[in-house]
Design a protein around this nucleic acid. Structure first.
Length: 289
DNA sequence: CACTTGACCTGTCCGC
DNA sequence: TGCGGACAGGTCAAGT
């Protein structure tokens, strides 16, 4: 769920709601929070960047808030910028502020940005803006598929790079797609869908893919990520946008979650599910040879 | 080095 | 209605 399309959707909304706003206070009791809350106070939001699945909120005082929401992190904006404050999705368990609010960012003009995280896997770091790209996790990220016009900072995943990445390993191609150090942004849902769209078996050794299969897969990755963005992300689990709404990609998945359903493309088989690398993997046995 | 399993956490859903 | 157990995606650490 929080893969590139979800994080990009959040990025766009934060840009809309937060730019120009000053942080007037930060309250955190979160175990995965690193850095000095006070470094943010007085800074104004000047931009929101994305590195793969990671967000960076840049302030005009030289500091940034870097956030990885992992599985259940939620960034919820509340305040007058929301014309009519929409009802919060019930996926915002406990509401805001609430039982699962880990960090509260108080902004000027009566605004708040809340970080909720039920399972507390996500992390937040306060660092100087010029040090964001030195955070080890971000430094190690591979190039990402360019599917959004927005200012992601990651290098583009060209077809040349993609072929090169595949050629260097015999790991199953699905595992490679989800390896953020090889390419960034793709997680389990979109990996499943891209493989189905490209008619590639997830277990295929990456280096066994010929140029044509690699091309199909390369294009499929871009296509499914764009679809994800178009539908505002997948709210299968805990994902919601900063205005508290759900995305709808979960209603448009190609293969993910479709165990037992007929394959609408070949009509020859039903989707089966198995585990690959510990992750739910959905394939049509007839068209993903 | 490649690959697998367990850990991190809690809510939801499923079966009895 | 209650309860135990499996399961969920993202990443890291430890084990084989």
């Amino acid at each position: 769920m929080p893969e590139l399309p979800e994080v990009e959707t959040i990025r766009g909304k934060l840009e809309k709601y937060l730019i120009g706003h000053k942080i007037t206070g930060v309250e955190s009791h979160y175990k995965n929070f690193e850095g000095q809350e006070d470094d943010l106070v007085g800074g104004r939001v000047k931009g929101i960047k994305r590195y793969g699945k990671v967000l960076a909120i840049d302030l005009d005082n030289g500091f940034s808030v870097v956030i990885h929401i992992k599985l259940t992190g939620q960034l919820i904006y509340r305040g007058p910028n929301l014309k009519a404050a929409p009802e919060l999705s019930k996926k915002v368990i406990g509401g805001v502020p609430g039982k699962h609010t880990q960090v509260t960012f108080k902004l000027d003009k009566g605004d708040y940005l809340y970080y909720n995280d039920v399972r507390r896997f996500g992390w937040i770091k306060i660092v100087k803006t010029n040090q964001v790209e030195n955070i080890p996790f971000i430094r190690k990220l591979g190039p990402e598929p360019k599917v959004a016009p927005g200012p992601s900072v990651q290098a583009a995943l060209t077809f040349e790079l993609f072929r090169n990445i595949l050629s260097k390993t015999s790991r199953p191609v699905k595992i490679v797609l989800m390896d953020q150090e090889k390419l960034s942004g793709v997680g389990n849902i979109y990996a499943n869908d891209a493989l189905w769209l490209a008619k590639v078996n997830p277990k295929t050794q990456a280096r066994q893919l010929d140029s044509e299969a690699a091309r199909q897969l390369y294009e499929a990755i871009h296509k499914v990520l764009k679809e994800g963005i178009k539908y505002g992300g997948s709210s299968e689990l805990a994902y919601v946008t900063p205005d508290g709404k759900e995305g709808s990609y979960q209603d448009h998945t190609l293969a993910y979650g479709r165990e037992g359903e007929p394959c609408e493309r070949c009509h020859k088989a039903k989707f089966v599910k198995y585990f690959l690398g510990g992750r739910g993997t959905y394939v049509c046995p007839a068209c993903q040879k």
